Amino acid sequence: MSFNSFPINPNETISTDTFPKIVVNNTNNGFKQPPPLYARLLCELIGTCLFIFFGAGCAAKPHDLLTVSAAHALVTVWLVYVFGPVSGGHFNAGATIAFAVNGKMKIIEIIGYLVAQGIGSILAGALLLCLYGTGTSLGTPGLQPGVTVMRGFAIEFICTVILSFVIFFTTSYNTYKEAAFPIGLVVFSSFLLGADRDGAALNPWRWFGPAVVSNTFQSTAWIYVVGPIGGFLFGYILFRLYKLLWNGRASFQI
C-alpha cells in the first residue's frame, strides 16, 4: 500500500487498515495506526519552528534576494516531504484555518494546531535570539522604503492565494511527497517577488515569533496576519470553484 491511500487532510477519520504500512527490505515500518493528535501537534510545532528558524535566520543576516527565497523554499520542501503525511504539513495559521473551513478538522484539532504552531514560532524566535543576540529584528518582515501598506498587503494576499490554491490542488490527487516540490516552488517564486518589498511572510507565524522575541512590532504588522489568512481562504474558495466547474463539466458530458 502506498501513501496514495492517505487522505488530503490526515485528520479525517479513517480505518487503521488504510493507514500506509510500507515494507522496506522486508521490514514493516512499525506504524500500525493513524498518527494520534499529540504526534501531529508535535510535528506542527517542530515544523513551524524549523521553517521560521531557517527562513528568518537567513533573512536576519546580510543576504541577497536569492538566498532568502531559496532558504524558505528549501525548508518548505523537506518539511512538507517529512511531516506532510503525518500532520498535513500546515506550519501556517492560514493553512490551518483554510482546512478548518473545509470542514475536515475538529475544534480541538484546530485549536491544538494553532497553539502548537504559535509555540513553535516563539521557540524559533528564541533560538534566533541565541544565535544573533539582541539589537536585531531577527528577520522580522517589514515594509521597505517606498512600499506602501496596501502594496505590502497585496503581496501577502496575492502570493498566499496562489500558494493556497496550489496546496489544495496538488494534495487532492498527489501524495505529500509528490506535492512538496511544487509547493516549494510557489514559496520560492513568492519570496523572489516580495522578500525585498515587504519581507514576504506569507505566514502569520513567520512574522509573529521573531517580532515577539525581538520586540519589533510595527503598526503595519496587521498585513502579515490578515493578508496570509485572507489569501489562504480566498485560495480555498477558488479551488472549490475550480472543482465545481470540473465536476459540472463532467456531469454535462455524461
Rank of each mutant, 00 (worst) to 15 (best):
I254Q: 15
E44Q: 02
F91A: 04
R240S: 12
Y38E: 11
R249T: 14
A126R: 12
N25P: 04
C159T: 12
A39K: 10
V86I: 11
C43S: 05
F6G: 09
I22K: 05
C58V: 15
N9M: 13
E44V: 03
R151A: 08
Y176K: 06
G194P: 06
G133C: 03
V77F: 13
S87N: 00
V23S: 09
N28P: 13
R151D: 05
R151E: 09
C43W: 10
A250S: 15
L131D: 07
K21M: 12
C159Y: 01
P145W: 08
G89A: 06
F252N: 12
L241H: 11
E156T: 01
T76K: 02
V75D: 08
S69F: 13
V226E: 07
F83S: 11
F165K: 07
T140L: 02
V225K: 07
G209E: 02
N215H: 10
R40L: 05
I108A: 12
V101Y: 07
A250N: 14
L66P: 10
L50I: 11
S189R: 09
V82W: 10
R40P: 02
R240Q: 14
L41C: 09
A98E: 05
L244G: 14
G184Y: 00
S137W: 03
D64M: 11
G84Q: 04
Q33R: 15
T18H: 15
S190R: 09
G118R: 07
N11E: 10
A195C: 10
F181K: 03
Q253T: 11
F208M: 00
G125L: 09
G57D: 04
P182F: 02
S2D: 08
I229K: 02
N9H: 11
F53I: 04
F31P: 08
G30P: 09
L41Q: 04
G94D: 01
I158D: 04
I162P: 05
F191L: 13
